[in-house]
Design a protein around this nucleic acid. Structure first.
Lengths: 156, 156
DNA sequence: CTCCTTATTGAAAATGGTTTCCATTATCAA
DNA sequence: TTGATAATGGAAACCATTTTCAATAAGGAG
């Protein structure tokens, strides 16, 4: 466990208090769900998982909280093209398990890969620097995804 | 070659005939609209532009045709995070004006950039090769986007 | 610990982009 | 020209997400 419920509570409590947000049961449940999976959960997925911990939490609150977490930078939001957004805990820009995605356009399967991340990151940072300067943009994040057919789907 | 309605018709006629699809008025209008802009049009945008050429074409047909064109690889479909898909003519993988996007998360403005494409493409091809092998994927395309605040929005 | 302000919540309704249905129309091979 | 059937368009259905609003609860003040 990310330890320390004693005084400040879990790591994210500070972030919330600092931003003037309240620490509520639904928010704790949602963050607990997110921190216990490696999967790319949809809002509905989160809702169902949270429901097991705290059945009174509504889907609306899940959407609202996810949006809040995305705005705070604690959670990433992805679109894999199946019409519903996916969420995963951020865990630091180049922190543990920073990864990109490989999406099967046939079955929708998503593979996280970390193999070539280092080179990618390096190039991206160069590019970001160039783009920032040229277009006077403050670049906050990027998205890289590869699409294709997974081994199970390529045979048809 | 963008000429010659005489016998084969425009360049894409061959693709259509070869795939067994019919060449219809709505499809011609939609392709005409797409080929005459550099912008990232939504389905509604395309619908309105097509409406000027051929007022009887319905929104349903626009959606269906765009999907068909995406499936055929003639058109790219993007998601810039504003809840509606955007479309643009493909014009070849590394063909003329191949570009990536820079999206302002505040006002939604999208800038196409081509500056660092060459290095990016090179890295991507390496990565694609590695990923294909390791995960046994047939990679068909990729997506790179940078997000941040544009010069007009960064001041707030 | 209690009170009070107000951020947060949840149910239901609204939204809005996209898809489906289905009867009608139009393409194009024969 | 004709016939099989792909394609079309309007209306209705879909469905993820957002909005509305009255009820609830977090947490600082006293």
């Amino acid at each position: 466990m990310p330890r320390g419920f004693g005084h400040g509570g879990p790591w994210w409590h500070t972030r919330f208090r600092g931003a003037g947000f309240r620490i509520t049961v639904p928010r704790q449940a949602i963050l607990e769900v997110l921190s216990k999976t490696q999967k790319h959960l949809s809002a509905e997925d989160v809702y169902m998982a949270v429901h097991r911990i705290c059945p009174t939490v509504g889907l609306t609150t899940v959407y609202r909280t996810l949006e809040l977490l995305v705005d705070m930078g604690l959670v990433f939001k992805f679109d894999f093209g199946d019409g519903r957004a996916r969420y995963e805990l951020a865990l630091g820009p180049k922190g543990e398990r920073h990864h990109h995605h490989l999406v099967c356009t046939n079955c929708g399967r998503v593979i996280d890969y970390t193999e070539f991340i280092d080179d990618e990151i390096e190039l991206l940072q160069q590019t970001e620097k160039g783009l920032s300067k040229k277009y006077n943009f403050d670049i906050t994040h990027h998205l890289i995804q590869f699409y294709g057919l997974c081994d199970k789907c390529k045979g048809r």
